[in-house]
């Protein structure tokens, strides 16, 4: 009988974090070797701001994965949110906040559906969220007749592309980074709360959790809702930063899942930390930047990315003495 380790022990050992920190450090060294001023505040700040959406998604994905499920719908949700925002705002500056509230509600709704279908109807989350992916992509194209309509207002885009200017020592702090830090803090608090521990227990052994009185379906559904919320925030940032397109969220689900696994979160649930997942996302982003600097041709990018992901995950899983 496998019993979930007490969380305190996990934190102290945190064996899961060492590999990802090493990998990130190596990539950063390679990056600074090529681009010495990469670690200077202005460039670092803008890098962190740019990475914020993927890091947010990885944090959202952490909750779902650690509870033993998978969310393949986040990429399509990001696309849907960006397209919806553009159509509803349609250049009207006063529509910004109401639309953000609406998007959050939509993100929660999608998470709820994912969660309830997975838990109450017992559909494997791979299938639930794959179905949701098909539904969202289809619905968004259908709703906009094949091409995005409307446009985002400057007001709305500010969150994704503007920054606090003239901050002493750091220069420019993108709003996206502030959002990211706030979410990271909230996520950290959540993982250390009762809910966070319950979630790990649920992912580690749902049967034991159920028998010890945990309402598994509620915990898992909450995880999906958190992922939906994270996707919504990511969508607001991505919409602001790069504008409206049907490709806005393409492939982000794989990115987020890869990031989480890279950061030591075990697919199947029960092991890993939200910090690891977020560091994993930063590592992926560093990798993309690195490939840019080293001039890897755009088309070959996936090959290099694939190779490095395989190497990194193999290295990461080699280090952690698996159960």
């Amino acid at each position: 009988m496998r019993i979930a380790r007490p969380p305190q022990l996990l934190k102290v050992r945190s064996g899961g974090l060492t590999p990802i920190i090493v990998i990130l450090a190596v990539l950063l060294v390679l990056l600074t070797a090529r681009q010495p001023d990469f670690l200077s505040p202005p460039s670092l700040m803008s890098f962190l701001g740019r990475s914020a959406p993927v890091v947010l998604l990885a944090a959202g994905q952490y909750f779902v994965i650690v509870s033993g499920e998978l969310d393949l719908s986040v990429g399509s949700l990001v696309t849907a949110q960006v397209v919806i925002a553009a159509r509803l705002i349609d250049g009207d500056p006063s529509a910004g906040w109401p639309v953000v509230v609406l998007l959050l509600a939509f993100g929660i709704a999608v998470g709820l559906v994912n969660g309830l279908v997975t838990t109450l109807l017992r559909v494997p989350s791979f299938i639930t969220t794959l179905g949701m992916f098909l539904i969202l992509v289809g619905a968004v194209y259908l709703w906009s007749d094949g091409a995005p309509k409307g446009s985002l207002s400057e007001e709305f885009r500010r969150l994704g592309r503007s920054a606090f200017e003239d901050v002493p020592a750091l220069g420019r702090i993108p709003y996206a980074l502030v959002v990211l830090l706030a979410v990271a803090a909230a996520a950290l608090v959540l993982t250390r709360s009762d809910f966070g521990r319950t979630l790990v227990a649920v992912g580690g052994n749902p049967r034991t959790a159920e028998l010890s009185g945990v309402r598994v379906w509620r915990a898992k559904t909450m995880a999906f809702v958190l992922s939906g919320l994270a996707a919504t925030l990511a969508a607001v940032l991505i919409g602001g930063y790069s504008g409206v397109s049907f490709q806005a969220g393409a492939g982000l689900e794989f990115g987020a899942i890869t990031a989480a696994v890279l950061g030591g979160v075990a697919l199947g649930g029960g092991r890993g930390s939200v910090v690891g997942a977020m560091l994993g996302a930063l590592t992926l982003e560093t990798l993309f930047t690195l490939m840019n600097f080293y001039g890897v041709s755009g088309a070959l990018e996936p090959t290099v990315q694939g190779a490095i992901i395989l190497l990194a995950v193999a290295a990461a899983s080699f280090r952690v003495p698996s159960r």
Partner: peptide
């Protein structure tokens, strides 16, 4: 290599995608 199948096959998929795109 004990890589999770999801990640392993997505990774191999990316390798092939790069080759095809290029």
């Amino acid at each position: 290599a004990r890589i999770n199948p999801f990640i392993a096959t997505v990774g191999v998929g990316l390798l092939l995608k790069g080759y095809l795109d290029n």
